[in-house]
């Protein structure tokens, strides 16, 4: 596979991850599965961002000593070769957001399980009638 194909299939994977996540959130009955769904959606978005940063044939956006010494002051050559680095930084932020949400949701799950002795949404929301 060449670069652009990799990118294409990466986007498809990301879309599938998000769709599976939405499916889990809406149709699954188990709370843990719903939480996994939320995380899958987050991971799908992360994959979209990572793939946006991908440049066919690009290098890692860390400047080597050779490139640094080659062009003091202006780093034209490095910038031409390097991957787009902004999306990677955004991904790092979103990973932490996902981890934080996961921690809180798992904590709530423990509490709900202690009270209802069940993880089924059907059981937990029994008091609210449909």
């Amino acid at each position: 596979m060449n670069g652009s194909e990799v990118q294409f299939w990466s986007f498809v994977t990301a879309a599938l991850l998000m769709i599976i996540g939405i499916y889990a959130i809406i149709f699954m009955d188990n709370i843990i599965k719903k939480i996994i769904g939320v995380m899958l959606i987050g991971d799908g978005v992360n994959l979209v961002l990572i793939t946006e940063g991908f440049k066919p044939g690009g290098i890692v956006p860390i400047i080597s000593e050779k490139l640094y010494n080659q062009s003091p002051g202006i780093f034209q050559e490095f910038a031409d070769q390097a991957s787009y680095s902004l999306p990677f930084a955004l991904v790092l932020t979103n990973i932490v957001i996902g981890a934080s949400t996961l921690a809180v949701l798992l904590g709530i799950t423990i509490k709900l399980y202690q009270h209802y002795n069940s993880l089924s949404v059907h059981e937990i929301f029994k008091e609210e009638k449909i």
Binding site: G53, P61, I63, Y68, I74, F75, Q76, F78, A79, A82, Y84, S85, L86, P87
Partner: peptide, 9 residues
């Protein structure tokens, strides 16, 4: 991103 790569080093 390109400007970031250009000035970042």
């Amino acid at each position: 991103s390109y400007i970031y790569n250009l000035r970042g080093p």
